[in-house]
């Protein structure tokens, strides 16, 4: 590319990512979260000592996106698998990457108890308010009134409960070092989320404590919205239910 010869590269694919193309839908924030995590791993220089624990769900291939060791966990069990890895090899940096069905429904017990023990792991919690992989069913985080394939008339809190606020739940515990909720709906929030992920990883490396970074994410396919409209929906509606910011920072 001769025309770029006088130019300096200021943004490149993180070195800790493999060359594989993501299997996510167009506009899906999972890919962005993967990139942010890769950037943070690069920045901390921990690619050779990081293990990615992938969930069941849209991110089931997450372990293949990184040039790090990786493991695929049973649905909801990623925090327990991460616990086992970290206890067996405390020198590793262990990242549990999970969606809302995985972390906040079938894996609720594993999630809460790993946090309550203060396992020295980093949990990346992708809250997109829907089961994406299985075709758009109601998640524990689905908003009141939001339509999904298993609540076609919208989530009725009278029989289905309200969206579960995971970050707030984890923030009630004494052990976690860092609990935060971030969003990716514009460049400013992407930058903030990037810093939050870096901090969570740094706390694991330096202070050996538990962090949860909840990321309010989109699901353009499941929400039946174009990606930009989905981002606007996050800004205007979703963040009212899931307020952004740090809930706990004991670092």
């Amino acid at each position: 590319m001769p025309e770029t010869q006088t130019l300096t590269k200021v943004f490149a694919r993180p070195r800790s990512l493999t060359d594989k193309r993501f299997t996510y839908c167009p506009g899906c924030h999972h890919g962005l979260i993967t990139r942010i995590l890769g950037s943070a791993i690069d920045k901390l220089g921990i690619q050779e000592k990081t293990v990615i624990v992938a969930p069941v769900g849209c991110a089931v291939f997450a372990y293949e996106w990184f040039r790090c060791d990786g493991v695929q966990a049973a649905h909801g069990r990623a925090a327990a698998v991460a616990t086992g890895i970290k206890r067996a090899r405390p020198d590793l940096t262990v990242v549990s990457y999970q969606g809302d069905g995985d972390l906040a429904a079938i894996g609720t017990a594993e999630t809460i108890h790993a946090a309550n023990r203060g396992e020295a792991i980093t949990v990346i919690f992708v809250n997109n308010q829907i089961y994406g992989m299985t075709g758009g069913q109601m998640a524990p985080t689905t908003l009141d009134g939001q339509r999904a394939t298993s609540c076609p008339e919208g989530r009725d809190p009278a029989t289905m409960g309200h969206p579960l606020r995971v970050a707030e739940l984890i923030a009630t515990l004494a052990a976690p070092l860092y609990v935060t909720r971030q969003s990716l709906h514009d460049a400013k929030h992407i930058a903030q989320a990037t810093q939050a992920v870096e901090k969570a990883l740094r706390y694991q490396v330096e202070k050996r404590g538990y962090s949860l970074v909840e990321i309010v994410a989109n699901c353009p396919t499941g929400w039946k919205m174009p990606p930009q409209k989905a981002n606007e929906h996050i800004a205007g509606t979703v963040t009212k239910v899931f307020p952004l910011g740090d809930l706990v920072d004991r670092g």
Partner: peptide, 29 residues
């Protein structure tokens, strides 16, 4: 590099004239 920072598929690389200082946050340089 706001485009690259927003891209969910890490499909964009960004170059800048050497005169410019600093680098984009979030990406590897």
């Amino acid at each position: 590099a706001l485009c690259a920072q927003t891209c969910p598929d890490v499909a964009i690389e960004v170059y800048r004239e050497k005169a410019a200082s600093g680098s984009a946050a979030g990406g590897s340089t």
